[in-house]
Nucleic acid binder design. Sequence first.
RNA 1: GGACAGGUGGCUGAGUGGUUGAAGGCACCGGUCUCGAAAACCGGCGUACCCGUAAGGGUAUCGUGAGUUCGAAUCUCACCCUGUCCGCCA
Length: 424
Amino acid sequence: MHDIRMVRDAAESLRAGMRRRGKADTLGPLVERAIALESERRSAIQATEEKKAARNAASQEVAKRKKAGQAADDLLASARALGDEITALEQRQHAAQSELDEILIGLPNIPLDDVPDGDESANVVLRTWGTPRAAESVTPHWDVGERLNLFDLARAAKISGSGFIVYRGAGARLQRALISFMLDLHTQQHGYEEAWVPLFVNRESMLATGQLPKFEEDMYALRDDPLFAIPTAEVPITNLLRDELLDNARLPLAMTAHSACFRREAGAAGKDTRGLLRVHQFDKVELVRWVAPEESAAQHELLTGHAETVLQQLDLPYRVVLLAAGDTGFASAKTYDLEVFAPGVGKWLEVSSCSNFTDFQARRANIRFRAAAGEKPRFVHTINGSGLALPRVVAAILEHHQRPDGTIAVPTALQPYFGAASIG
RNA sequence: GGACAGGUGGCUGAGUGGUUGAAGGCACCGGUCUCGAAAACCGGCGUACCCGUAAGGGUAUCGUGAGUUCGAAUCUCACCCUGUCCGCCA
């Protein structure tokens, strides 16, 4: 959500932001409408408050007269008339306000200056770590999984439907090992506090982090309760501090959580859906930081580094992609995708999306801080990223660490958690 | 799910329908005192919005939303949340 003052005083940068996302056609008119509504809202407020001030003065005078034992019938009549005018003006104000709110809650964040313009084709590969393995002689993970009995997608489809996973045996253990490894890394080396959070959250939480109102069809909703299954632990973690004023808080605050994530993937049918690549339920370790505005760019780099460390310790080649404005998520001002190379699939797989949301989520969620006593509260900046999403990491391990004899080498850092050096 | 009790500022805790933005306490900030600190004492101290270059003025805000009233933290209704007890389940 944008500062209402932006609509008034910096409308051009708002227009430019929508343009850079390639949404000038659809969102441009909304911006113009918002500007008109804001001026309407303000004139209504002015008129309303003037009348209210008059009514308050009259009321005080009534009190005074009653105390003195005098009659106040004339005042009562005029105050009653004022009340009617106020009601009408308030209706005008509320109408403008609610239409304005609806527009503002639906406008995406403004990309930072160093984000390239354009759509997905303008994404920039910033760096690559490790050496992608040649695709020949590497079996895709779905074949490996079947041969080594690591997961059972057919039975998962039977009990739930396509797009669900059943891990078993070493496959189940591998995922559990990865979760423990990642959580330990982030809590012990990177300074995150571990959390365990609800998998179902209310509408307010989804609005605060930006999943709603635009992406309702992407989420699972419960039938009998007004709750949504979380698409990422970002939602419950960020909302931990919703409507809070962090007084004397020493920022940054950093939290990590492992959770299941649920995505309907509506409209994604048929696209990279084989094996573990795109599923309705998956596990993920999430990283969230609440930071001071002036630090958010540096903190974004820091968090991205924390996610990269996971891939480095798992000895998996990856690249860091800076997303172009048109490919950057609704709430994000700048996003780095981490893509691991899976030689069996022959593709770079997104395993983490590290975003700087600036004050966009904080304003929606009303998360403020006071840097020092006596200072005005300000909105924090929020930053988050996966560290990492599990199924694609599993896929990459099964492919990149595949030996000629068909067994899988378990990365050294993972061996204490997995309990063996090899699968198969 | 049922019955009670309760939701007031960063925290705690008073509050009779009429200078209550809201006593007191804690925390915090400034000052006096001190070599320095602590203690004590004095003063200050919510948030958001509107008008204004500013000084300043105004409006709203006591869980949320409606209502009664000239006027609501205070009265009415609905909803949400918390606590306790009962029931149910693990």
